[in-house]
Design a protein around this nucleic acid. Structure first.
Length: 279
DNA sequence: TCCCAGGCAAGGC
DNA sequence: GCCTTGCATGGG
C-alpha cells in the first residue's frame, strides 16, 4: 500500500521497494546515491528516494509526482507478483526473488530507453552510464541543477563524429538515425498500442536494435512482461541452470514458456542475482 | 596485458 | 533459416 502525504509518495514497509537495487539494476543508467538516498532521472524529470521508518519516500516537484507513481509502478503489488513467481519451480528462482526483493520494473521514457539500450549493446554498464551522462551534459536542457535527457531534436542535430567523440564507437550512426526518425514523427508513442510481437518488430526497424535491445525497451519502457532479454549474463545463467547452451532465441522461447506473463520480471531477478551476487 | 561487456549487421551457407 | 565474423571503446 502507498499514499501521498505533503506532496511525497510514501510506500508502506511491507511493499517491496528498494531504491538501491533499482538504481543498480541495469534497467536505467543515470541514477546515483546521494547522502542516504538515491536520485533518479527520467527524461526531464527527477526525484529523490529516501527511507524513513522502513518506508520508502519519493520526493519530486508536485507536478511530477503522478509521473513517478507510474515510473516506479507504484500501483502494482510486487508482494503479490513475487509470491506468484516463487511458485515456478526453477532452481534458485525462489532464492533470486528473495535476494532481489525490492526491485521493480520501471516505466521509462520511450526515447531515453531506446537510445540508452542502443548504446548498451556489447558494452558494460559503467561505460554506458558514462556515455549517457556525457550526452545529457552536452545536449540536454539544463534544469535547475541537473541536465535533462537530450530531446530527439537535439540528438538529431548532431552528426556521427559527435557521438564518436563521446565514446559511442560504432553505435554512432545508429544513434543519429534513431534520433532523426524519432524527431520526425511519433513512432515511439504510436507503437505503444501494439501487441508485444508487433511492438518488438517495430522496435527492430531501428538500426542498432536487435532482439535483445528490443526486449529491453519493451520491458523497461513499454512495460511488457511477456519478453525475456537474453544477454551475456543470461546465457551464463541459462547454461548454469539447465546445463545446455542453445541459441539465444531458443533460450528466450524456453524462458518465456516457463515464466509466462511474468517472464520479464523473472529475468530481472535472475539477472540481478547473478550479476551482483557473483557466480 | 588481456578478456569482456545488458549485441548487432552483414555475409556465407 | 542458422552460424560466423568484425566491430570501437575502456572497465577491471
Amino acid at each position: 500500500m502507498w499514499h501521498i502525504e505533503h506532496n511525497k509518495i510514501i510506500i508502506d514497509a511491507k511493499e517491496p521497494f528498494d531504491a538501491r537495487k533499482i538504481a543498480v539494476s541495469g534497467q536505467l543508467f543515470r541514477a546515483h546515491s546521494r547522502d542516504n538516498s538515491y536520485v533518479f532521472y527520467s527524461g526531464d524529470k527527477r526525484c529523490v528516494v529516501s527511507r524513513c521508518n522502513n518506508r520508502a519516500i519519493i520526493e519530486s516537484d508536485v507536478e511530477s509526482l503522478a509521473y513517478f507513481i507510474d515510473y516506479f509502478d507504484i500501483t502494482t503489488s510486487y508482494h503479490t507478483l513475487n509470491a506468484t513467481l516463487r511458485r515456478v519451480k526453477i532452481p534458485l528462482l525462489s532464492e533470486a526473488v528473495r535476494y532481489g526483493s525490492g526491485l521493480r520494473i520501471i516505466r521509462q521514457n520511450y526515447f531515453e530507453a531506446l537510445i540508452s539500450f542502443i548504446i548498451s549493446s556489447n558494452n558494460n554498464i559503467a561505460r554506458i552510464q558514462k556515455i549517457i551522462t556525457s550526452l545529457c551534459t552536452s545536449l540536454g536542457v539544463k534544469k535547475d541543477d541537473f541536465y535533462a535527457f537530450p530531446s530527439a531534436e537535439a540528438m538529431a542535430a548532431r552528426n556521427t563524429a559527435f557521438y564518436e567523440k563521446h565514446g559511442c564507437g560504432y553505435r554512432a550512426p545508429w544513434l543519429c538515425k534513431a534520433a532523426k526518425i524519432a524527431a520526425k514523427n511519433n513512432v515511439l508513442e504510436d507503437i505503444a498500442a501494439l501487441p508485444t510481437p508487433q511492438l518488438l518488430d517495430a522496435l527492430q526497424e531501428f538500426d542498432g536494435v536487435g532482439p535483445k535491445v528490443a526486449d529491453c525497451v519493451a520491458l523497461f519502457a513499454y512495460h511488457r512482461f511477456d519478453v525475456f532479454p537474453v544477454d551475456t549474463w543470461i546465457k551464463k545463467i541459462y547454461t548454469h541452470l539447465f546445463g545446455a547452451s542453445p541459441s539465444a532465441q531458443i533460450m528466450r522461447r524456453h524462458l518465456i514458456e516457463t515464466f509466462g506473463h511474468n517472464a520479464g520480471l523473472a529475468q530481472q531477478y535472475l539477472f540481478y542475482y547473478y550479476r551482483t551476487r557473483g557466480k
